[in-house]
C-alpha cells in the first residue's frame, strides 16, 4: 500500500522549466550593447599595444633596476602621506558622526535628513583631487590642503555609511531608554551608538586604508606627500626612481591594509 502510494507520488513529480528566462537574455543583450556603444568613446585600440610592443618594452625596461639611492627622502614623504591620511580621516569621523545621525530617517524628520543627505552627496560626488586643487588655492601648497581635501570627501562617505548602520538598528533598546524619560540626545548616546559602534569603527578603519591610497596621489596637485615626488620623477623621465617610489608605496599600503584588517576583525 505504502509503496504504491510512493510510486504514485514520484510519477506526479514534474521537472521544472529550467530554460533561461527572457529577462535573463535581455540583461546579457543590454550588457553587450552598452560595451559596443562605448567602444568608440573610450578610444579602444587594443592593437596599438601590439604594434608599439617595442616601444613599450623599452619604456618598461627604463624602470629596472629601481633606483633606491634616495630612499630616506621617499620614506619620509610616505610617512607624511600617512599623516595626511590620519588627520583627514580623524577630522572626517568627528564630522561624520553628527552628519550621519542627522541623515538617518529613523531618528530625524524628513526635512532634516533630506537636506543633510544632499549635502553629503555633494561632498562625495566631487573627487578628493578636485577638493585638493581648491584647497591648494585657499590654504597654499602642502600637506594641510591634502588633509582638508580628504576631510570633506571622507565626511560625505562616512556620513552615508554611518547613517546606513543607524537605520538598521533594533529600535527596541532605544524605546527602553526613552521610557526612562531620557532626552533625545541621551537616546542616541545610550540606545543607538552602542549598537552601531563596532560597524562605525570598522568603516572608519576601512576609510583610513582608502585615504592612505588617495593621499599618495594628492601631491600631484601640490597637496603634499609622496605624490609630489612621484609626479616630479614621472615628468622628468626618471623611471628608475619612479619604480623605487612605487615599490615603497606598494609595501607601505599593503602593510597598513593588513594592520587595519586585523583591527577591523577585532572590533566586529
Amino acid at each position: 500500500m505504502s509503496t504504491q502510494a510512493y510510486s504514485q507520488s514520484t510519477r506526479d513529480i514534474v521537472v521544472p522549466n529550467t530554460k533561461r528566462s527572457f529577462a535573463n537574455l535581455a540583461m546579457w543583450g543590454i550588457t553587450f550593447a552598452l560595451l559596443a556603444l562605448s567602444w568608440e568613446g573610450a578610444d579602444m585600440r587594443p592593437l596599438s599595444l601590439i604594434e608599439n610592443a617595442e616601444n613599450m618594452s623599452q619604456f618598461v625596461s627604463g624602470f629596472f633596476p629601481p633606483d633606491m639611492s634616495q630612499w630616506r627622502m621617499y620614506v619620509n614623504e610616505i610617512w607624511i602621506t600617512i599623516q595626511i591620511a590620519i588627520w583627514g580621516t580623524a577630522l572626517s569621523i568627528v564630522f561624520a558622526v553628527p552628519f550621519g545621525i542627522l541623515s538617518s530617517e529613523n531618528l530625524v524628520p524628513w526635512w532634516v535628513f533630506q537636506p543633510v543627505r544632499r549635502l553629503m552627496d555633494a561632498f562625495r560626488a566631487i573627487n578628493e583631487m578636485v577638493f585638493a586643487m581648491l584647497f591648494v588655492v585657499a590654504v597654499g601648497l602642502g600637506p594641510f590642503a591634502g588633509v582638508l581635501a580628504l576631510w570633506v570627501h571622507t565626511t560625505g562617505i562616512l556620513a552615508k555609511l554611518f547613517s546606513e548602520a543607524v537605520e538598521s538598528i533594533d529600535p527596541r533598546p532605544v524605546e527602553g531608554i526613552r521610557a526612562t524619560g531620557a532626552t533625545a540626545l541621551q537616546e542616541v548616546i545610550y540606545g543607538v551608538i552602542p549598537q552601531v559602534l563596532p560597524l562605525w569603527i570598522s568603516y572608519s578603519l576601512y576609510r583610513f586604508e582608502s585615504n592612505v591610497r588617495s593621499a599618495t596621489v594628492l601631491g600631484i596637485v601640490g597637496a603634499g606627500g609622496i605624490g609630489m615626488v612621484l609626479w616630479e620623477n614621472v615628468r622628468g623621465f626618471y623611471y628608475a626612481e619612479t619604480a623605487a617610489v612605487m615599490i615603497l608605496i606598494i609595501i607601505s599600503v599593503s602593510l597598513l591594509d593588513l594592520l587595519s584588517q586585523r583591527l577591523r576583525k577585532m572590533v566586529t
Binding site: 527596541r172 533598546p173 527602553g176 545610550y190 540606545g191 549598537q195 559602534l197
Partner: peptide, 8 residues
Amino acid sequence: QFNLVNRL
C-alpha cells in the same frame, strides 16, 4: 523583549 542595550 526586555529592550536592554545589549552591548552595555
